[in-house]
Design a protein around this nucleic acid. Structure first.
Lengths: 195, 195
DNA sequence: ACCGTAGCACTAACGGTTAGCTTTTTAGAA
DNA sequence: TTCTAAAAAGCTAACCGTTAGTGCTACGGT
């Protein structure tokens, strides 16, 4: 039971990685809907049940890489400099995230996601979970109860900024435009304290 | 092809209604996940294929009643009085919608939705579609291109207000609180014109 | 009365997902 | 080293939502 220093973990991680890589490759080659779970499992040389012990669903295979999205957002809140205001910190992080996912190399993946209703639904649901986590982080940072309406609202708005900016003609400009609105909303919510 | 005044339509509508009623009853009796499509079809005395010719998915059975949500929102924009400002009109409509879905009789249904991941995902996706429609209505009303970022943003924020307020301890107060933020955001987006 | 078609039924399947159970591999104790 | 318990992986067979293919029946317009 002590520190599992080990081979097990490495092998497990390797299996997981192999599955994810294989899946993404096949999806991009043949299209998401045209590739079945059984195809991915066969190509990765694992059993279907093994695949599902690593990933909760077919869609989760696609969003493997996006795993640190949630963490980066909460870190932008909890790990910012002592007197740095909240909204600009969020704006800065969303800028980086949007730049990352609109980079050249990532284009085919996001096109695939846009074209598949199942993947879109999955992402939408995932982002809302991220919003809840972010809301809790914001509330904690401000010493408020975790379900404070204003915090949940700002968290949702921030996620909205990410998804809307991604689809805009000029993503970086859209982030700035939306965050001007969020800034105003935040000040309207905390009229007494310019945090 | 002229006005199909008729029995066919009535029968079709009756079948659809019977399916929806049966489904909702079974879901509330035994739980959404515990009832299969085949159960619903059998109890409503129709074939499975017939059920799917009326409803696109199992989840759609639950949101039958909620069909006019989208329409009411767009009407709140396009059908408002000549010089009535946009945001208060939206706020008023969201107030009504939240009151409607937090009414006593509707409680078990919304509890069921909250408890089922599939239903939550479906609703989230549906609301985002509504947001797109609303954004287009707002843009059209203001004579702007349908993908104007500010309009899409306000539409998303409005939908956020609906879903967040529903979950708040005091839904009506939450609507007001969030709409204060939306109002500020809107003014920040249109600094030159107080529409 | 006749014809075209909309609505519905039935069977059979597909694809994602899970349950049940067996086999292999590994970590740590004896 | 050898043994053991548990984690990881495997296989089979199914469940469930959903769709395709096909045919039948009843209705609406002529």
């Amino acid at each position: 039971m002590p520190v599992p220093t080990g081979r097990r973990e490495r092998k497990k991680a390797a299996t997981r990685q192999k599955i994810a890589d294989t899946a993404l490759r096949l999806f991009l080659e043949r299209g998401y809907d045209a590739v079945g779970i059984r195809d991915v499992a066969a190509e990765a040389d694992v059993a279907v049940t093994t695949l599902f012990s690593h990933f909760a669903s077919k869609e989760a295979l696609v969003f493997e890489q996006d795993a640190d999205f949630e963490h980066r957002l909460t870190r932008a809140v909890t790990g910012r400099a002592p007197h740095e205001p909240l909204i600009p910190a969020l704006r800065h992080e969303i800028h980086a995230l949007v730049r990352h996912c609109t980079a050249d190399g990532a284009a085919p993946i996001w096109r695939m996601i846009e074209e598949s209703p199942a993947l879109r639904k999955y992402e939408e649901s995932m982002r809302l979970r991220h919003a809840e986590t972010l809301a809790a982080a914001i509330a904690a940072d401000l010493g408020l109860p975790p379900t404070t309406t204003a915090c949940r609202t700002i968290a949702r708005f921030t996620i909205d900024a990410y998804t809307l900016a991604r689809e805009a003609a000029d993503p970086q400009a859209a982030v700035d435009e939306i965050f001007q609105m969020i800034e105003a909303a935040w000040q309207a919510a905390t009229p007494t304290r310019p945090t």
